[in-house]
Design a protein around this nucleic acid. Structure first.
Lengths: 136, 136
DNA sequence: TGGCCTTATGTGTAAAATGTACATATATGG
DNA sequence: CCATATATGTACATTTTACACATAAGGCCA
């Protein structure tokens, strides 16, 4: 059994939110509170709202999204965000980056399978010291 | 055509290095310079060495790796790192986390396929505003 | 009406992580 | 002797995040 939290609160990578936010806004125009709920549905368990709201304002400052206040509904006023042309271009760029993450993760699991039971690969670095060497 | 760098130098997520470092050290005992080369082989194109060396010293401070100086070879002295039992436990925990990343990325591409050409999903947030509404 | 909860958006500030520039030392080759 | 590759490190500024706190509207209920 793995101990409950072996990572010491260093879990979520950073700069990981932006492509998901852009993708959500590619599909719907939403305000921050609903964006956060949607992100939770997509696996972001603990997005704290200041981080999300600041990210949204940064994206707007960069011109990748725009917002307008929606006051007609019930409850407090909502700032509804929509993606811009520039934001859709950015989403395309991020998609390539996320694809790179995907390849890196696939490589991780390939190496993981090798490390746990299979022979070391021939294409390792220059003559690395094998850890399971029996020549003590 | 996507512009050369639409992301504005905000590409690599943070906290992304640790599981790869642990996995490399699970397989070989290496010094930092070779670890960096191995990471480059695995798709980490731009790991700068201060970040890696700091990460290694942090892991050692945490007890997840140990190091010893190797002075017998040629060239400058090398600090060779090896993973510890605690480090292998941490690697197991990180593996679950990376698996979570993998799921999130798979969800990203699922949604990406939906956003680019297919109907919006029924399981979206509470009555979101559709972006392609024709009721202008 | 007064209090409490949910929704909804924000600020302030400290901590964490990274990137750039700089510094140091060994060996090899010209 | 100087340049280069190897190898490790420090110093500092920037970026990014996390935590605590603040504000406001509306619904519910006693």
């Amino acid at each position: 059994m793995v101990s409950p939290d072996p990572l010491g609160s260093r879990k979520l990578p950073k700069n990981f939110l932006t492509p998901w936010v852009l993708l959500v806004l590619k599909q719907w125009s939403l305000h921050g509170y609903l964006i956060m709920q949607q992100l939770n549905n997509m696996g972001f368990a603990e997005v704290d709202h200041p981080t999300l709201y600041r990210e949204l304002r940064r994206l707007e400052k960069e011109g990748h999204v725009v917002s307008e206040w929606q006051t007609d509904g019930s409850g407090p006023a909502k700032r509804v965000y929509s993606i811009t042309e520039a934001g859709e271009q950015m989403l395309l760029g991020w998609t390539e980056v996320v694809s790179g993450y995907q390849r890196m993760i696939a490589g991780f699991f390939d190496m993981y399978a090798q490390a746990f039971g299979m022979s070391p690969p021939a294409a390792g670095p220059d003559a690395p010291t094998e850890r399971d060497s029996t020549t003590t």
